[in-house]
Write a protein that binds this DNA or RNA. Structure first.
Length: 863
RNA sequence: GCCUGGGUGGCGGAAUAGGUAGACGCAAGGGACUUAAAAUCCCUUAGGGCAUGUCCCUGUACGAGUUCGAUUCUCGUCCCAGGCACCA
């Protein structure tokens, strides 16, 4: 064994070994229990960044650990390879999205291999290949036939810069989530997946996802946004028309004094026509259409509206209610109409104040003397109904049901449930995506491409048009198609699918990635799915995870899978953060643009001292990034992996520290030298595996420590994924082993050392797989056998030494401690505690009221 | 505003069933080895006190409470991060 640790050399050696022996290739094996470990696959942006490294290291430790525990572990990797950055890069670098994407995949695959991740590379997929998206198109056609897909003309968020539609959740504070440009409204024909049909089921199962962080299921519940209430018709005065509203507060209907419609509401034009408000209404509607939806729902946005010149009638009391259009009423939620109860809804209250509308109190707080509410805000709590006709005196909660019963009896309205979630718009006016397999025919309408004609191949010889526009629409060879149903000339759909579609079923494809007679091999999916542990960033808490749950339900309802939830357990890891450095004149600085003079960073461009800013998520814009490749180059993959796990538990944010990385490197060096000192001596030494009683004291302690370490590491990985404390435990063991001298020539210690060093190598192997394989071999074990070695067990009877440390408190304050035989009885312990000289000082002459004994740990003397 | 997390030394963090607060690592200081440096090894390191101890006091954001005993449980307050929000 080399005296010095050379990470580059040994990492190359083992990576080649694993690759040549296909060490991590797996096949379904009904005789073995499976474990499917999945990390969110990356977008091939060009380079692996440190967030990927953290994510995939966490996953790799679990995969390797479960493998050693005897599971048949599926641990695949692939590429979420369609998407806009490829188009942007193609324009910027005068290349082709396909070329750019495949080059990036090649580069990033090499980077992942250099980190020593134990993937089954035979299962690698890239979603931009026809043999992948073919099955996505196939599924689309199936969904189309089952009426799970819908084409609607609708207002969509449109980004002029990206020339594309954005989902609501892709709009951040009125701006495009990718480019940051303002989003505007545009009416387009769009394809939608009817996810709303599954809203209730998706919601209901949130509480059954016990292996998910509560924060994620809560976010999903909020996203689905169920609310129960009633739909009620308000007749429009002087016409046969009625306005239907949805309300969660039917109990306040007697206080409804006006009506608010969304600007897009179909009745707006009709009702305002011919009134003197017609002009004002048209002006307001047109102004609203220029404002993006996201802008309109901004918190800071002032509530405003316009009277439309018409009235409706409150069906319970006949009150004439003026009808307004209001910017806060949304056509996409409920019915697009709001019955406004200013006394009991803050928004309505503000609106009423602004436009001088009536405020009628109908709910009196339980213990309030006055019947009114404060005139500065609405009262939204519970209370007793007043000014409410026959319902006066009733508590408002049962009052809700009573009022709905009354509506239902009189045909005025009914119980209703509303969801915030809307259907999933999947159309993208983009080139680099999976073509939607539809042919438009003048006679037959939208006709799905027959399954035998799939895939609709994305032509890779096309180039992007000016401004990044998709070339598909102008590519005659693509567009020209004959109608599958009548044979007449038709036009192919030129929209491509949202890339969230690809990532909604890739985990199923991994089970049989080369299957070419169906979307997947049913037996393989039956064996491997669902994913036992999914690991990824919390930024995907809503969209990706919800869409995946939805897709799994679709597959379930088609009889393709027999489960509804794809991910049994979910771990959302924290972000990787680093302090920012900013120069007065040059702005944010990259670490390599910074020189340190003592503690203070200096800008290498101007030499002036720079400012250390907050610790923030690593991002190119803040320039607080580090390059994983450079680190692997300097310290080796094992050090990078070790630091990523040691610096913080996985779910927390990780603060990057160059010195911390060096510390990790030093630890590996220490382990290496420790083993190098003993390797030769222990080559043929059998490990001690007996009871600690058979050892002399100094060896016994080490032996017990080794067993304790095995237990600690096992528990930390198994129960909590707290690798940081697992690593600490091995460090403690190593510190203890380090002071033992091989030259002492002690056969008992040799046997114990062999046990302890073997254990340390095995325990660390999921975390730092290269160095441990090397050490394992040097200690005399079969080369390359470590990653298939059994995870070590520990003996309960080897965990405790035969003496215990008892601490003594007086009135809860620590006053003394002593060692005692583990089998000492309570009376002996108490007696010894009272005799302790320091304790005696505190109890002298005092009355002992009580002595509390915590077993094998502590004595508390209460005075 | 609402929903999640979180607040512990100079720093990252530990304390898994209410029982020794600060494991492990980083940084810092001191020492050994060396012609010297790097590397390595050893020691110190929450704050304060003096009687320098197997010593005492204070201390886990703040204030109360439960308990023999609270970083841990309960209530209230403050602060930080992430998510959601004109949702009728």
């Amino acid at each position: 064994m080399d005296q010095k640790y050379h990470p580059g050399k040994i990492e190359n050696r083992w990576q080649s070994f694993w690759e040549e022996t296909k060490a991590y290739a797996v096949a379904a094996d009904p005789a073995k229990e499976k474990y499917y470990l999945l990390e969110m696959f990356p977008y091939p942006s060009g380079r692996i960044h440190i967030g990927h490294v953290r994510n995939y290291t966490i996953g790799d430790v679990v995969a390797r650990y479960k493998r050693m525990c005897g599971y048949n572990v599926l641990h695949p990797m692939g590429w979420d390879a369609f998407g806009m950055p490829a188009e942007n890069a193609a324009i910027a670098n005068n290349t082709h999205p396909a070329r750019w994407t495949y080059d990036n995949i090649t580069a990033m695959r090499r980077e992942l291999k250099q980190l020593g991740f134990s993937y089954d590379w035979d299962r690698e997929i890239a979603t931009c290949t026809p043999d992948y998206y073919r099955w996505e198109q196939w599924l689309f056609v199936r969904m189309f036939k089952k009426d799970m897909v819908q084409r609607k003309e609708s207002f969509v968020n449109w980004c002029d810069r990206c020339q594309t539609v954005l989902a609501n959740e892709q709009v951040e504070a009125g701006d495009c989530w990718r480019c940051g440009d303002a989003v505007r409204q545009k009416k387009l024909w769009q394809w939608f997946f009817k996810i709303t049909d599954y809203a209730e089921d998706l919601l209901e199962y949130c509480d059954r996802l016990t292996g998910w962080p509560e924060k994620v299921t809560t976010m999903q519940k909020n996203w689905i946004g169920k609310s129960t209430g009633a739909e009620i018709d308000f007749p429009v005065a002087g016409t046969d028309a009625a306005i239907r509203v949805f309300t969660t507060r039917p109990d306040t209907i007697f206080g409804a004094t006006f009506m608010c419609l969304a600007p897009e509401h179909p009745l707006v034009e009709q009702l305002s026509k011919g009134t003197d408000q017609q002009g004002a209404v048209a002006e307001f509607v047109s102004r609203m259409s220029r404002e993006s939806h996201a802008e309109r729902i901004l918190d800071s946005h002032e509530k405003e509206g316009v009277f439309i010149g018409a009235w409706c009638v409150n069906p319970v009391n006949g009150r004439r209610m003026p009808i307004y259009i209001a910017n806060f009423a949304l056509m996409e939620y409920g019915t697009g109409a709001v019955m406004s109860v200013p006394a009991h809804d803050q928004r309505d209250f503000e609106f009423a104040k602004k436009y001088g509308l009536d405020i009628v109190v109908v709910i009196k707080p339980e213990d309030a003397a006055e019947t009114g509410v404060a005139q500065t805000e609405a009262y939204t709590g519970d209370g007793v109904m007043i000014n409410s006709g026959d319902f006066n005196g009733m508590d408002n909660v049962p009052g809700k049901a009573a009022i709905i019963d009354y509506f239902e009896k009189n045909g005025m309205g009914s119980r209703s449930i509303n969801y915030r979630i809307r259907d999933w718009g999947i159309s993208r006016q983009r080139y680099w995506g999976a073509p939607i397999p539809i042919i438009h025919c003048e006679k037959c309408g939208t006709v799905p491409v027959p399954e035998e004609d799939l895939p609709v191949v994305l032509p890779e010889d096309a180039d992007l048009l000016e401004g990044g526009q998709s070339p598909l629409g102008t590519l005659e060879s693509f567009v020209k198609a004959s109608c599958p149903s009548c044979g007449a000339p038709g036009r192919r759909e030129t929209d491509t699918m949202d890339t969230f579609v690809e990532s909604s079923w890739y985990f199923e494809r991994y089970c049989s990635p080369k299957h070419d007679t169906g979307i997947f091999d049913t037996d393989a999916v039956k064996y491997w799915m669902p994913v036992d542990q999914y690991i990824g960033g919390v930024e995907h808490a809503v969209m990706h995870l919800l869409y995946s749950r939805y897709f799994t339900r679709v597959l379930h309802d088609m009889g393709l899978v027999d489960f509804k939830e794809p991910f049994t357990r979910l771990l959302t890891q924290g972000m990787v953060c680093k302090e920012t450095v900013r120069c007065q004149t040059h702005g944010y600085l990259y670490p390599e643009e910074t020189r340190y003079v003592g503690e203070t960073p200096h800008c290498s461009k101007c030499g002036e001292p720079a400012e250390i800013g907050r610790v923030e998520k690593m991002s190119k814009s803040k320039k607080n990034v580090i390059d994983p490749n450079a680190l692997v180059e300097t310290y080796g993959a094992d050090t990078v992996r070790l630091f990523c796990l040691f610096a913080a538990p996985p779910e927390r944010d990780l603060e990057w520290s160059e010195q911390g990385v060096e510390g990790a490197f030093r630890f590996l060096n220490r382990i290496w030298r420790l083993c190098a000192r003993w390797a030769e001596r222990l080559q043929d030494q059998a490990p001690y595996t007996g009871h600690p009683a058979g050892l002399p004291e100094h060896a016994r302690e080490v032996y017990i420590k080794a067993h304790q370490t095995i237990k600690k590491v096992t528990d930390d990985i198994e129960q909590r994924f707290h690798f940081n404390t697992a690593i600490s435990a091995v460090m403690e063991l190593a510190n203890q082993l380090n002071v033992i001298d091989p030259a002492a020539d002690d056969p008992d210690m040799d046997a114990v050392m062999r046990f302890a060093l073997d254990a340390a190598a095995v325990l660390l192997s999921p975390i730092v797989p290269h160095i441990t394989e090397e050490i394992w071999e040097a200690l005399g074990n079969a080369p390359g056998s470590l990653s298939n070695h059994d995870w070590p067990g520990f003996r309960e009877d080897c965990l405790v030494s035969d003496t215990r440390l008892i601490v003594v408190q007086v009135n809860g304050k620590l006053r003394g401690r002593f060692e005692i035989d583990a089998d000492a009885d309570e009376e002996t312990i108490k007696a010894l505690a009272l005799k302790d000289p320091n304790v005696a000082r505190f109890i002298e002459g005092k009355n002992i009221r009580k002595v509390i004994l915590a077993k094998n740990k502590l004595v508390n003397i209460v005075l």
